[in-house]
């Protein structure tokens, strides 16, 4: 299958940005009961891309909300293959990326994982525990299958390291907004604008800020500098609390709308 709407993740985001838009990419946990409907709800809300989590038993980059949704999905029997299979039959035209941890991909086999993503029409992959130093074998497989590996860029990196991260990133550069794991925060961390600005000065690739962006206001605030945001915990919490894909969709629409108004 070609990527959704025939574009790569990077082209789709860049086109939106070039037209003056800001990107909103929600994270949704795959394998939660009823999760397919949340993907459709995201597409209907007008998001620019969707990050689909493949749950792992030991998600070290995730805070309580995504730990909880991951465990719930695992308890419901979620597996990487089943999630990828389901995605193949979800009819949305938004570019998709999976977000998961190294071991699930390693166990699956890097080449096979990359080619199955591609076959399911998934453009990108985000693997938060595969930093630059370990990225070689996976990226080779991903590049070979045309899967875009989104790299994380963190506030702790010096400029030299950021340059190398940016160079290796495909799809977009995932700017980690703060020192910490995923989860909602009262206010936007000062580090988020700083890292976004550092990255924007280095690259024309889309720069999206994730981790700690919790409200539409915070999304707008950081997008004064960044090209958009990735939001996970706030949306997943809404979905877990209401058990409703529509409620999740409404919140996603609020983010999209706020970013469109600027």
């Amino acid at each position: 299958m070609t990527p959704r709407n025939g574009l790569t993740l990077q082209t789709a985001l860049s086109t939106h940005i070039a037209a003056g838009g800001k990107c909103f990419v929600p994270y949704l946990t795959g394998g939660l009961p009823g999760w397919e409907a949340t993907i459709s709800a995201a597409a209907a809300a007008g998001v620019q891309g969707i990050e689909i989590g493949i749950p792992f038993s030991d998600p070290v980059m995730d805070g309580p909300v995504i730990q909880h949704s991951s465990q719930k999905a695992l308890d419901a029997g979620a597996t990487p293959a089943a999630i990828i299979d389901s995605v193949a039959s979800i009819d949305v035209e938004v570019p998709l990326a999976v977000m998961t941890y190294a071991n699930l991909v390693y166990r699956f086999g890097y080449e096979r994982f990359a080619s199955e993503l591609r076959a399911a029409g998934i453009s990108g992959a985000i693997l938060p525990d595969i930093p630059l130093e370990e990225a070689g074998p996976w990226c080779e497989a991903a590049d070979g299958s045309g899967v875009e590996t989104v790299m994380l860029a963190a506030p702790t990196a010096d400029d030299d390291r950021l340059e190398r991260v940016v160079e290796r990133a495909r799809g977009f550069v995932y700017a980690v907004g703060l020192l910490g794991i995923t989860g909602e925060r009262e206010s936007l961390a000062a580090t988020s604008k700083v890292i976004a600005a550092r990255l924007k000065s280095m690259t024309d690739k889309p720069v999206l800020v994730g981790v700690g962006v919790s409200t539409p206001q915070q999304a707008v605030e950081v997008s004064e500098v960044a090209d958009g945001v990735v939001v996970g915990s706030a949306i997943v919490r809404r979905i877990l609390e209401t058990g409703s894909a529509e409620a999740g969709g409404e919140l996603m629409a609020e983010f999209v709308e706020a970013l469109a108004l600027g």
Binding site: I130, L132, T156, D158, R161
Partner: peptide
Amino acid sequence: FVPETLVP
């Protein structure tokens, strides 16, 4: 195999 934040 750690989050990017920890590598430095």
